[in-house]
Design a protein around this nucleic acid. Structure first.
Length: 500
RNA sequence: GGUCCGUUCGUCUAGGGGUUAGGACACGUCCCUUUCACGGAUGAAACACGGGUUCGAUUCCCGUACGGACUACCA
């Protein structure tokens, strides 16, 4: 009998949640729901210096917006409360002491300055300093000092950290769901700090302890954690615990050039990297959010799911439920994926077209009569990427044109089109039924009577009425403008063209 | 520098010892539409390089190159 699947998303509240973190959360959510497991949200706030006010709520709001809320943890509670590591501080101390007592960890009294100095010396010799089996005997710690010295130091209030005593010669190996076997020799791992001098655990300790206590079965996290995974394995071994199954996700890379996606790329490329708009409480700087830009949650989910994973079929559009049933860790890619905002836009267009017309009308054109608003939605829906463009389109549509597309006027304003517009200006007032189809046949008839080819006039008519050479269906547009408005626009335009 | 991870069209990717190397985005052309957009069709576009193994390698192995991550009392 295998244990019930439990996964966790464990961000730090150091600012807005990055889109890569959102994808990590998504994959955790998908796996949990696929296998009937539990998706846990834990906050890793062991670095008090980097804590940012509001970040935790931001994370929750983001997950809520996307519809991938946790089943347990921050915001929902559960059997392992608290889910905020800063509130579990005492717990980690117990486990660190256990390691001290079993000889798997030791106290170290070196100051940051001393260590920095060591690093500088090594660097000047062209090598890198490591706090490990080779160097620890020469440094200030409980392995190099007598028991008396140690207890005196601790009693005197000398700050200390607790470090893991990494074995000198051992091969660490573990099987990653995405990368298969990963081997690392302990000689390349240093004696990482487990407890900081402020009494807080480091990520490594807190993470392993919590994952064990919370009975996490699968750790799905970003590839940036791959190098420290062997250390975590060592920690599990030191405690005598069974490590969870690891899956290290490929990174999200910047769209152009090299490197991982950063906020700077977003500013440069004019797209967001955060799910929601974020105002930095310290600097007051506001960063764009996908939500505010007009991305739909369904589009974001679909887009993000496909950045590093695919179902192996040719289906591209997946609802969250479809993703849940199609998802598997085995189909996650190894290589990093460049973030392509064009693809994100395409997904948004696809999902926008699937939206309910009357809902869009109410939401984005609230000042218009419902029926009219819905007509506008129909008119513009497949010409926009973001729903809020609806308002801009309608505004542009409703305003009288003041400039006329020059290239078209230059090409198409001639004797024949002039005569055609004149004919329409004079005859259109007679049209009783002001509706797209009848407008169309009326124009057809009137022009034919005057011996003018429709094709010679239509584009000029469009420019005359809208100012643009291209746009939505002209007959429907005329219906929406109304007879009076059309005649007004026509008169204005003919005057303007004649003055040229 | 060291350690680890990776590399199929511009981008996201499918595939996998013998394939016309497939799809999607973006781009071009055509059709639809008296415009544009949508939609449809179509085109251009890829196995990083060098060695093995093999009858045969893009696929397996090894190197090289390139890219990435990590290398804090940050996560």
């Amino acid at each position: 009998m295998s244990k019930k699947l439990r996964v966790r998303f464990a961000p730090s509240p150091t600012g807005a949640l990055h889109i890569g973190g959102v994808r990590t959360a998504l994959y955790n959510y998908l796996l949990a729901h696929k296998l009937g497991g539990t998706f846990i949200l834990r906050i890793e706030d062991t670095d008090q210096t980097r804590f940012v006010e509001g970040a935790e709520n931001y994370i929750l709001d983001s997950l809520k917006w996307l519809g991938i809320m946790p089943d347990e943890g921050i915001g929902v509670g559960g059997p392992h409360e608290p889910y905020r590591q800063s509130e579990r501080k005492e717990l980690y101390k117990v486990y660190a002491d256990e390691l001290i007592n079993s000889g798997k960890a030791y106290y170290a009294f070196d100051t940051s300055e001393e260590l920095d100095a060591m690093r500088a010396i090594y660097e000047s010799k062209g090598s890198a300093f490591q706090y490990n089996a080779l160097t620890r005997v020469k440094l200030k710690n409980s392995l190099s000092m007598s028991e008396q010295e140690i207890s005196d130091l601790i009693a005197s209030g000398m700050p200390y950290v607790i470090r893991l005593k990494v074995p000198a010669k051992a091969e660490i190996r573990f099987q990653d769901s995405i990368r298969d076997w990963v081997h690392v020799h302990t000689s390349s791992i240093d004696d990482k700090v487990l407890m900081k001098s402020d009494g807080m655990p480091t990520y490594h300790l807190a993470n392993v302890v919590d994952d064990h206590i919370m009975e996490i079965t699968h750790v799905i996290r970003g590839e940036e954690w791959l190098p420290s995974a062997p250390l975590h394995i060592l920690l599990y071994q030191a405690f005598g615990w069974q490590p969870p199954q690891f899956a290290h996700l490929p990174l999200l890379l910047k769209p152009e050039g090299n490197g991982k996606l950063s906020k700077r790329d977003a500013d440069l490329g004019g797209f967001p990297v955060f799910p929601l708009e974020w105002k930095d409480p310290q600097t007051g700087t506001i960063s764009k959010g996908f939500k505010q830009e007009g991305y739909l949650p369904s589009a974001m989910i679909n887009f993000l799911a496909f950045l590093g994973w695919n179902p192996g079929t040719e289906q591209e559009l997946f609802s969250l439920d479809e993703l849940i049933s199609a998802f598997s860790l085995e189909r996650i890619n190894k290589a990093g994926a460049k973030f392509d905002v064009n693809k994100a836009k395409w997904f948004n267009e696809q999902y926008l077209k699937l939206q309910d017309v009357s809902t869009l009308a109410v939401q984005y054109l609230p000042d218009l009569p419902k029926k009219e608003a819905e007509s506008f939605v129909h008119l513009f829906l497949d010409r926009i990427t973001f729903p809020q463009e609806l308002g801009e389109k309608v505004k542009e549509f409703t305003e009288l044109p003041t400039i006329y597309e020059e290239a078209v006027v230059l090409n198409k304003w001639n004797e024949e089109s002039q005569k055609g517009l004149q004919v329409l200006k004079e005859s259109l007032p007679d049209l009783e039924l002001w509706e797209a189809d009848s407008i169309k046949s009326f124009i057809h008839v009137k022009l034919e009577e005057a011996g003018i080819k429709m094709g010679k006039v239509m584009q000029m008519l469009r420019v005359a009425l809208s100012g643009n050479g291209a746009g939505p269906d002209l007959m429907i547009s005329m219906e929406l403008w109304g007879k009076e408005q059309v005649l007004l626009r026509l008169t204005h335009a003919i005057d303007a063209f004649n003055k040229r």
